[in-house]
Simulated assay, not measured.
Amino acid sequence: MNRMLKATAVAALCCTVAGTGYMGVAQAAGHDGGADGSTARATHAGHGDRGDSFVGEKKISVEGRSVNVSCAGRQSDRKPVVVLVAGLGDGLDAMADLQRTLSEKNRVCSYDRLGEGGSDKPEGPQSMADTGRVLTGVINRVSGDSPVVLAGHSLGGLIAARYAPDHRDKVKGLVLMDATSSTTTADVTRVIPESATGDSGDLRAQSIAVMQGQNPENLVVPDGKVRSAGWIPTQVLRHGQQYLAQFPTYGPQLEADWTKGQYAWAAVSHRSTIRVAENSGHYIYVDRKDIAVKSIQRVAAEVTQRNGGWWGHEGR
């Protein structure tokens, strides 16, 4: 089959895995007490603290590990800090253009997870709890007392959606851009039989390998249920080009399951909306940057409007 089609199909199921020569599927975490391994809320500085106001890239220390962070834009009262969470195999540079555009109205930060970009390599296998603790360290450093909007792509969207329910005091909005489905691993192994050969067999095998930690982050990512983060404004964006359906034999069912998974993410909030990014592939923030920008700005604006009496509370 066409190599580009194969690469695109696998990328849609997760994202590029740098340095492995192929792409793979990453998957949601099980409910292990939260995306950072505990139900504790993210701690932050005292009242009036806006966090670290640096602009550009900076290395920060999180639990003794060096994490590369980039921030742009100025923070103002009541406005949330937008934190971008890239997909597996992507460093913060992948979202640099999106960050620059968003920084015209909000302070926007991105970061390299351990094993990506300029951050330290993980010392061994990582769990979703581990990657959640790194995210907590970044949020605490860049946001201070300000609320946060998480905008994640692919596996980054899954990480954001798994993290938000246990950090409702800080995460006040979500934008999920073609987020990895919470049942992708089960879907792929159910749709593509173990007996499959050729490109389909490769896709199945690669997916299993990546979900077991054979990726730049050594991140093990098992399936899990979608949990609610309450009433935070949430925008779910899914790709509009149904190229998964072109994958031989199993494509239509993979596309159907992917779409179903995107709608399932709506359960992460009672205040969620779903939008199809027409004419977009998996990288919505590249193919339809306008839609990604408007969605993030819309969620950030709603958080700003509700900040006075709603921030810090779980209510409507």
Score class of each variant (00 low, 15 high):
residue 2 N to M: 08
residue 5 L to C: 06
residue 5 L to Y: 10
residue 8 T to I: 12
residue 9 A to V: 14
residue 11 A to M: 13
residue 15 C to I: 04
residue 22 Y to H: 14
residue 24 G to D: 11
residue 27 Q to M: 12
residue 38 S to P: 04
residue 38 S to C: 01
residue 40 A to H: 12
residue 52 D to L: 02
residue 55 V to K: 13
residue 57 E to P: 09
residue 63 E to P: 09
residue 65 R to E: 15
residue 65 R to L: 12
residue 70 S to I: 11
residue 74 R to Y: 13
residue 77 D to M: 07
residue 77 D to Q: 12
residue 78 R to A: 11
residue 80 P to K: 05
residue 90 D to N: 07
residue 90 D to W: 06
residue 94 A to V: 04
residue 103 S to N: 05
residue 105 K to Q: 09
residue 105 K to C: 00
residue 106 N to V: 04
residue 109 C to S: 02
residue 111 Y to S: 02
residue 113 R to P: 02
residue 114 L to F: 06
residue 116 E to K: 05
residue 116 E to T: 02
residue 121 K to G: 08
residue 130 D to M: 05
residue 130 D to Y: 03
residue 134 V to Q: 01
residue 140 N to K: 15
residue 144 G to N: 09
residue 147 P to Q: 09
residue 148 V to T: 07
residue 156 G to V: 08
residue 159 I to L: 15
residue 172 K to I: 01
residue 176 L to I: 12
residue 177 M to F: 02
residue 178 D to G: 07
residue 191 V to K: 00
residue 197 T to H: 07
residue 202 D to I: 03
residue 204 R to V: 07
residue 205 A to M: 01
residue 212 Q to Y: 06
residue 213 G to Q: 00
residue 214 Q to I: 12
residue 223 D to K: 04
residue 236 V to T: 09
residue 243 Y to T: 11
residue 247 F to E: 08
residue 255 E to H: 11
residue 262 Q to V: 13
residue 273 T to G: 12
residue 275 R to S: 15
residue 278 E to K: 14
residue 282 H to S: 08
residue 285 Y to G: 03
residue 304 T to Y: 00
residue 310 W to V: 00
